Amino acid sequence: MRNHSPRASVQSMTRAIYFNGTLTPSPGLSHTELLIEKSASILRAEGVDVEIIRTVDHDLAPGVQPDMTEHGAASDTWPELWRRVLAADIIVIATPIWLGQASSVTRRLLERLYAQSGQLNDRGQSVFMNKVAGCLVGGNEDGMKHVASEVLYSMQHIGCAVPPQADAGWVGEAGPGASYGDELDDGSRAGYDNDFTNRNVRIMSWNLIHFARLLADGIPNEGNDRRQD
């Protein structure tokens, strides 16, 4: 039986994948990735294997099928990304805010995750059951809680567990201005000393770890086995 004590090492059992929804392809600067690193560093310190994927770097065909090349698309890299998602215990969707909404690549990612929602694990549950989801949001306009609510609703709907306080983020002043991590006139970095952001990133990150440990042996399938009538 696995050790679920608060300081137990999770290196052998926990893997996290962060999807960065920036619209900037690599190797361009991504403020969203700076925010991701604040959370990812907490997980790494606890022995979690962390992978960060910049969604815009991948050719995700539009659609809600597992492989859109079977439905007319010329190419689709989602099947390869899906294998990496399937191996993860923790999934964090990170996105900037554009026009008050999650980025377009984040919306497409959610659609492709939804494409897998009909698959079952070996207990007859959703294939996402026993995976833990969180959300990070950045930008310089309002809408952080709105975006997080849409993302986390989507993730729990397909079967992920959402811990308490599973979202965090930073937004600057409305309109054009500094983005997260930009150097300010006084030499500081925008958002780095924001108590609200730092506290919520810490709480979110630790709750993701705690829930991954709690779910290491799986949610009982009484009542949620889709193979039952």
Rank of each mutant, 00 (worst) to 15 (best):
G28P: 07
R226G: 00
H210A: 14
D167V: 09
I52Y: 07
W170Y: 15
Q65I: 02
H146T: 11
I209L: 14
T14W: 01
T77S: 15
Q101D: 10
A102F: 06
R123A: 11
H210S: 06
Q116A: 14
R107N: 12
Q101S: 06
S30W: 05
K38R: 13
R202D: 14
T77G: 13
S149Y: 05
F19E: 03
L113H: 00
M144F: 07
S188H: 07
A212M: 11
W98F: 15
A216V: 10
L81M: 08
S126T: 08
L99Q: 14
G159D: 05
A161W: 08
I203D: 00
T77I: 06
A161Q: 05
G28K: 07
T22P: 07
C160V: 04
L214K: 04
L81S: 04
D217K: 15
G63Y: 00
V105L: 04
L152I: 10
T24M: 12
L99C: 10
L120N: 01
A212C: 13
R112M: 06
I90P: 00
R44I: 09
M129A: 15
Q101N: 14
P176K: 03
V48A: 05
E222I: 10
V85A: 00
R15Q: 12
S30A: 00
V147K: 13
D195N: 11
S39E: 02
A148M: 08
A174L: 15
D217H: 05
D122A: 12
T77K: 14
V132D: 01
N224I: 14
P164A: 05
A45D: 12
S41E: 15
A168P: 04
I219W: 02
D122E: 13
T69H: 08
F19N: 03
G138L: 00
G139H: 01
A178Y: 12
T14A: 10
R189I: 07
L23A: 15
R84K: 03
L34R: 14
G191C: 09
